[in-house]
Nucleic acid binder design. Structure first.
Lengths: 344, 344
DNA sequence: CTCAGTCATGTTAGCGCTGTCACGCAACGA
DNA sequence: TCGTTGCGTGACAGCGCTAACATGACTGAG
């Protein structure tokens, strides 16, 4: 501000003695402006405290430096990690993040998509592959690159980066079986489509070994938490007292199960195996350390942005790229049955 | 879109047979447009799929519906809760959130403030009271209401909502002393100003009881985590083997301490009392449940937005409002030394 | 019947910036 | 000498919307 009035491009231009467009170019395409002018302009900008008006820029050029990010939840620590990756990658660029929160509702997602796309974003990052039909077609006709994160699947809208929740759950279940567990239980909360696919992976692996039983499944629509894990475990063990291992849809639940097991003096891993999902930092630190499926959330966010920037630079071209970041079953004490402990 | 061309206000206006400004009014100040036209316009908007261009609106009216939120970290679960409150409160309003991430750097905060203020936000929510001098003066001359969250203190820029970290830490420490602990230790990570004030609260309470010792203090600049809690506890007990209670700057550290205590077969709470800070959900679910200082993060975010909206409605007026949300020491088993257990 | 007052709608201009094209000038080959 | 090319700069218009004022139809008091 200067005299309480906004400092504009023309103010800077007048101060240097050039036209406004030259200042604009000095900012956006410096290579088109002579070095001497560039320096003078830069000095004037500092002196006057000029800050570009993004609204005016967006209006004039029908482009913005905004990358829209649409995720189901800001609270969920899984997305927190993804966001950290996203913010890190965006930090050294001129782009801004605009966050949208679907709260796991496809309808809200659709509405957000409309709003975001109306703002002519430079790019869009959306979570998952389960857009509503209208949402999907909005994405397909979007005039900016789109990255779908969290999951891989058929038919990417544009770019896709994630991993297979089905395979990850399957691998974890196989690990439990390999450790000698036979009465496998499944615990799920907030059964969104991603979670459903994890369940399918569990079910498939268990069924293949002839170990699947509907009785040893608890799910709820409630959002997961540590205490919910404890609570669901109580239900689970009541309806199937002979269970010997639990695969939990996420680490919060797994931790809750472990605490409840301690409360009930069920020894982990001998009497009860526990496997979580996501491999939050605390799983390795727990006592005993808890087996979990490691996913590369930070990397996912980071690479999503990097790929988006690349696509922005060349203009939509990579259509169809799918990056599978994979996963890793981190085997820890909570499922280390057999080697030393006795089974019952 | 329609014929690949953006649908504008005038398109809607032409379709209904009115002028553009009438459509604009139907959207912004419906009470100034006759019911009949309003309905026709609304139908036309749906039919054509019109989405307002926020950039054009911002440029023409020098106002936006954006509330800037500047916080140190998106990852930190403390801020995740605050954000949840903010998003919840904003959800039913026409306002959008623009998130900025200072990464605990006052310089970055200053830069963000400049950028945000350049966008003429409707309001601003900033974290804490430790802005740099320039940052502070930017806030003071801002032409929108400003809410400082997370902490209370002297001289609010405008509105302030939070609690006293000093008093909260002090109360927790007094609780430890009351429980009979005498060799009080302090564990801190990422020692930002807020954390420093917690340390001062601990120090004061301990010193008043003649129980403060520099030897029983560990701090680090690293960001906190559960495993860091375990690790720091190892250091702590090495340098002060006789400690009998730890006050941790946050719950991650506290959980790490508890796991490490279990590993070392130190009984909690008899041999070791543990107190965390923030009262994350998992603290009550842990085994044993861990004492922590409950803070009202969700409420803070929610009320910050509500107060902001009010201030926006009346135009900056509440200057100087300070809302202290207080805190609550949740006494649980991890500090229930002796006979009497704690509830909750 | 007149005239101020009210209400619903329209006209005009311009927010701050950039796309587009035009222009002046130096360097260079024919 | 002229044309050609390329570079750096400027003039102008217009992005989509709304502030401010203007207009016209209608109301009701005097």
């Amino acid at each position: 501000m200067r005299d309480g009035r906004k400092v504009t491009l023309s103010d800077v231009a007048a101060h240097v003695g050039v036209s406004a467009i030259t200042v604009s170019r000095a900012l956006r395409t410096p290579e088109k402006v002579s070095l001497k002018l560039r320096e003078e302009i830069s000095r004037a900008i500092d002196l006057l405290g000029y800050v570009p008006d993004p609204a005016a820029r967006a209006l004039a050029s029908s482009r913005t430096d905004v990358i829209g990010v649409i995720i189901p939840s800001v609270t969920n620590s899984v997305f927190a990690d993804v966001l950290r990756g996203i913010y890190t990658a965006v930090e050294k660029t001129p782009f801004d993040i605009q966050l949208g929160n679907t709260r796991y509702s496809p309808l809200k997602e659709e509405k957000l998509l409309k709003v975001f796309l109306g703002q002519k974003p430079a790019g869009l990052i959306v979570s998952g592959i389960d857009q509503s039909e209208r949402g999907r077609s909005l994405l397909e006709t979007a005039s900016c690159p789109v990255v779908q994160i969290m999951e891989t699947g058929e038919n990417p809208v544009d770019i896709m980066i994630g991993f297979s929740h089905y395979e990850a759950a399957r691998a974890a279940t196989i690990h439990l079986i390999e450790q000698g567990y036979r009465k496998l239980a499944f615990m799920g909360a907030r059964m969104d489509p991603r979670t459903q696919r994890r369940f399918q992976g569990f079910r498939q692996a268990a069924a293949e070994a002839g170990l699947f039983s509907e009785e040893r499944v608890v799910t709820t629509a409630e959002p997961s938490s540590v205490s919910l894990g404890s609570q669901l475990f109580c239900e689970l063990i009541e309806q199937a007292p002979d269970l010997d291992a639990v695969f939990c849809i996420n680490d919060d639940l797994a931790l809750g199960v472990m605490f409840e097991a301690q409360r009930r003096r069920l020894s982990v891993p001998d009497r009860l195996g526990i496997c979580g999902f996501n491999d939050l930092e605390m799983m390795a630190a727990a006592e005993p350390p808890i087996t979990s499926v490691r996913t590369f959330r930070y990397e996912m966010g980071k690479r999503a942005v990097e790929m988006l920037l690349e696509a922005i630079a060349v203009g939509r071209g990579h259509r169809g790229t799918i990056v599978d970041l994979g996963f890793e079953v981190r085997k820890r004490a909570s499922t280390a049955r057999g080697s030393c402990g006795a089974s019952d």
